[in-house]
Computed example of a mutant assay.
Amino acid sequence: MSGKKPCTPPESERISNGTRRDFIKKSSLITAVALAPGTVVKAAENQWDERVAGVFEKISLHVDVNGVKHNLLVEPRVTLLDLLREELGLTGTKKGCDRGQCGACTVHVNGVRVNSCLSLAVTNDGKKITTIEGLANGEDLHPMQEAFIKHDGFQCGYCTSGQIMSAVALIKEGHANSELEIREFMSGNICRCGAYPNIVNAIQEVKNGGQPS
Results as ranks from 00 to 15, higher is better:
residue 6 P to L: 08
residue 167 A to T: 09
residue 99 R to W: 10
residue 116 S to K: 03
residue 49 D to A: 15
residue 143 P to E: 04
residue 24 I to V: 12
residue 178 S to N: 08
residue 158 Y to C: 09
residue 162 G to S: 08
residue 161 S to T: 15
residue 93 T to A: 12
residue 64 D to M: 05
residue 77 R to S: 14
residue 15 I to P: 02
residue 179 E to D: 13
residue 59 I to E: 11
residue 30 I to L: 05
residue 134 G to F: 02
residue 36 A to Q: 04
residue 47 Q to K: 14
residue 211 Q to S: 15
residue 148 F to Y: 10
residue 31 T to Q: 14
residue 211 Q to T: 15
residue 161 S to I: 00
residue 92 G to L: 03
residue 198 N to R: 14
residue 12 S to I: 05
residue 88 L to A: 03
residue 162 G to C: 03
residue 152 D to I: 14
residue 155 Q to D: 04
residue 130 T to M: 14
residue 114 V to G: 07
residue 24 I to T: 10
residue 15 I to N: 09
residue 157 G to E: 08
residue 204 Q to C: 02
residue 156 C to R: 11
residue 180 L to E: 15
residue 2 S to N: 13
residue 29 L to R: 11
residue 213 S to M: 07
residue 181 E to C: 06
residue 110 N to H: 05
residue 74 V to A: 12
residue 200 V to I: 11
residue 41 V to Q: 01
residue 17 N to T: 11
residue 37 P to C: 12
residue 79 T to S: 15
residue 74 V to M: 12
residue 132 I to K: 04
residue 70 H to M: 09
residue 9 P to G: 04
residue 48 W to D: 06
residue 129 I to L: 02
residue 57 E to W: 15
residue 20 R to I: 12
residue 4 K to W: 01
residue 12 S to N: 01
residue 72 L to R: 05
residue 25 K to L: 10
residue 169 A to H: 13
residue 169 A to K: 08
